[in-house]
């Protein structure tokens, strides 16, 4: 609830102060104040811009560069170093290893692993033999 300030005039009659006027500050105070404000604004904006440059990156988790690759392109990537994804005891490629390293969905990883295991069974991957 708003409460106005109670004031008395010269006759002793009371009233409420609802509006008053303030004169402008003297120039020798106002001029340095304005410059100081600009100085502080510059400091504030520069600190914020440096902070924002760290936060404001467009590397969102959902955007995956491997998502748009075809199976052939992914197989080429696996062929570069197939031993990392291959289990020699079971003689099969490991699903989790492929999924984690290329950040693939489960369906896409299953498709890829089927092709890779087929190639491995036919001895068409020379690096494994």
């Amino acid at each position: 609830m708003l409460k106005y300030m109670k004031v008395y005039n010269t006759n002793g009659r009371s009233g409420y102060l609802k509006k008053f006027f303030v004169t402008a500050p003297p120039l020798f105070l106002e001029a340095p104040y304005k410059r100081y404000k600009l100085f502080m604004q510059k400091q504030l904006y520069t600190t914020y811009s440096t902070e924002m440059s760290v936060v404001d990156t467009y590397k969102v988790k959902g955007i995956n560069p491997n998502k748009s690759l075809t199976n052939d392109q992914l197989i080429e990537k696996v062929m570069a170093n197939p031993k990392e994804y291959y289990n020699y005891k079971k003689k099969k490629f490991v699903l989790e290893a492929l999924q984690d390293s290329f950040k693939l969905s489960k369906d896409k990883a299953y498709n890829l692993i089927r092709l890779l295991n087929f190639k491995a069974n036919n001895n068409s991957i020379p690096a494994l033999s």
Binding site: F28, L29, P32, Y36
Partner: peptide
């Protein structure tokens, strides 16, 4: 006057903080 801030002749620094 704060560090890095200079006053001109005849001016005084008001007690303002940000």
């Amino acid at each position: 006057p704060p560090k890095g801030f200079e006053l001109k002749k005849g001016e005084v620094m008001p007690r303002v903080v940000f």
